[in-house]
Design a protein around this nucleic acid. Structure first.
Length: 474
RNA sequence: GCUCCCUUCGUCUAGCGGUUAGGACGUCGCCCUCUCACGGCGAAAACAGCGGUUCGAUUCCGCUAGGGAGCACCA
């Protein structure tokens, strides 16, 4: 019987859940689910200045929207400060740590000196073996780890491979601040240990922290969890992801009309692959996910591919489910309220009826909303610029001739209106397209739409004839 | 500057010593067609450079170049 897998997602609540964090959460979640383990959630709120309640809410909301759930109660790191202090004291008592009375000025000097000499070690260890009596009175000391001076610190990373640091390049890190608060480095180690975390899966930016944390684990005599440092996500130009690029909160992706399944699928394939497979259901993702298949280089964020995937998931979604998604997303999009005001049993039914045609041509829910606008439009129709150009005196006349023909259709449906139109076209020596386009414009105010016969059927006889009358001239 | 990581089509990637270097997105053709999409068919498009190791390197090693991360009493 092997020990159960425990992973964790540990965001610091200083902002929204960004796309990189979402991927990290996803990977942790997949790994835990694959092995029937647990994924824990820990909010790293020890930075009291920057941590906010809205940020916590945004992160939880983002995870929920993405369909990522976690096990057990959410752990708040700040609440565990006493325990962190206790461990620091324990290390101190065991001679594995020491009080450091160096002042901020001294530390700055050391840093400048190190840089000038090309050394990576910032702190010179001056209080390592010095008695506290030498300290200035009233000075609050920090507690520093007595890190090994020689040898090497090795991390066998599941993604990055074996990574080695020479201990002479690693200085004595601060465990407890002068004000008695634990540092991130200490808190993470203690929390991961106490929470029983077996696998740490996090961003590449923590790779060096792994070495420092390993030293704390060693001093404590605790076993280091399995480490996996996944490459970061870059902007389309290869530079660090910034607000200019895709460093948006997941809520922004929701507002752009992306669906969770598509974002999950896109994110999982960013840096991870399973042969040539591109589309993964959640079950397939869980079954196929594997740390060893994660690449080591950073991946650029590509909206075009996300959009393609999103279109795929929209096309393959159930019509009724799409109506629900349509309705839900209205709360998050700019002109959503206006559409929402028009939703009633009639328009909802029309939307459902039009959905097979609508979903074929929408890459995002925004496009879906836009293409469905003919259902919610008021007469007389607002015309988009390109549509206006279609309405020439000739095409208006054509609409005028067509209207009585359609008026004769009593058993109104896509099939009967199509038959009437084809007969009309033939009788006038016209191609179907020559009539379909003006008709489309008159009915939707746009030059593109789902199949025109579907539009006719969805709108119904009376509404269609009225809209045609608005644009016709005889 | 220092420590560490990375490098296959424009992008995401497959490849784990011998392949016509595969797939997907995007791009460009053609077909389908009432528009736009969808779908189908096809095309262009990559092993960063230089040295080794080897009968043979995209694959192993080294160097160079180019990216990236970190370097706090932040997380």
């Amino acid at each position: 019987m092997t020990a159960p897998i425990v992973t964790r997602f540990a965001p610091s609540p200083t902002g929204f859940l960004h796309i990189g964090g979402a991927r990290t959460a996803l990977f942790n979640w997949l790994y835990a689910r694959k092995f029937g383990g647990k994924m824990l959630l820990r909010i790293e709120d020890t930075d009291r200045e920057r941590s906010t309640e809205p940020a916590i809410a945004a992160i939880l909301d983002g995870l929920k929207w993405l369909g990522i759930d976690w096990d057990g109660d959410t752990v708040f790191q700040f609440a565990r400060a006493d325990r962190h202090r206790e461990v620091a004291e324990q290390l101190l008592a065991a001679g594995k740590a020491y009080h450091c009375y160096a002042t901020a000025d001294e530390l700055r000097e050391m840093r400048e000196k190190a840089r000038a000499e090309g050394k990576s070690k910032l702190y010179d260890g001056r209080w390592r073996d010095r008695a506290a009596t030498a300290a200035e009175a009233g000075m609050k000391p920090t507690i520093r780890l007595k890190a090994p001076l020689t040898g090497e610190t090795v991390i066998d990373d599941q993604v990055q491979g074996r990574v080695v640091w020479q201990n002479e390049n690693l200085d004595d890190l601060v465990l407890l601040r002068g004000d008695g608060n634990p540092t991130y480095m200490l808190a993470v180690v203690v929390d991961d240990h106490d929470m029983g975390v077996t696998h740490v899966i996090r961003g590449d930016d923590h790779l060096i922290n792994a070495a420092r944390q390993k030293q704390i684990y060693d001093a404590l005599g605790w076993e280091l969890p399995s480490m996996s440092h996944i490459p970061l996500i870059h902007g389309p130009d290869g530079s660090k992801l910034s607000k200019r690029h895709g460093a948006l909160g997941v809520d922004a992706y929701r507002a752009m009309g992306y669906v969770p399944a598509a974002l999950r699928n896109y994110l999982v394939r960013l840096g991870w692959s399973h042969g040539d497979q591109e589309i993964f259901s959640t079950e397939e993702m869980i079954a196929a996910f594997d740390l060893s298949a994660i690449g080591r280089s950073a991946a650029r964020f590509d909206f075009a591919k996300l959009e393609n995937l999103n279109g795929h998931y929209i096309r393959h979604s159930d019509d009724q489910a799409l109506v629900t998604m349509f309705e839900d997303v209205l709360s998050y999009v700019s002109n959503g309220a206006a559409v929402k005001a028009k939703l009633n049993d009639v328009t909802r039914a029309q939307l459902l009826q039009a959905m097979p045609g609508l979903k074929e041509r929408a890459k995002t829910l925004i496009e879906l909303i836009d293409n469905a606008s003919f259902i919610f439009a008021d007469r007389p129709l607002a015309m988009e610029p390109k549509a206006t150009a279609v309405l020439t005196p000739e095409t208006r006349a054509l609409i005028g001739k067509l209207q009585p023909v359609l008026a004769k259709v009593t058993d109104w449906s896509a099939a009967t209106t199509e038959a009437a139109m084809r007969t009309f076209a033939e009788a006038n020596g016209l191609k179907l397209g020559a009539i379909a386009q003006p008709l489309r414009v008159a009915l939707t105010g746009k030059t593109t739409s789902p199949g025109i016969f579907d539009v006719l059927a969805v709108l119904g006889r009376d509404e269609c004839l009225a809209r045609l009358a608005d644009q016709a001239s005889v």
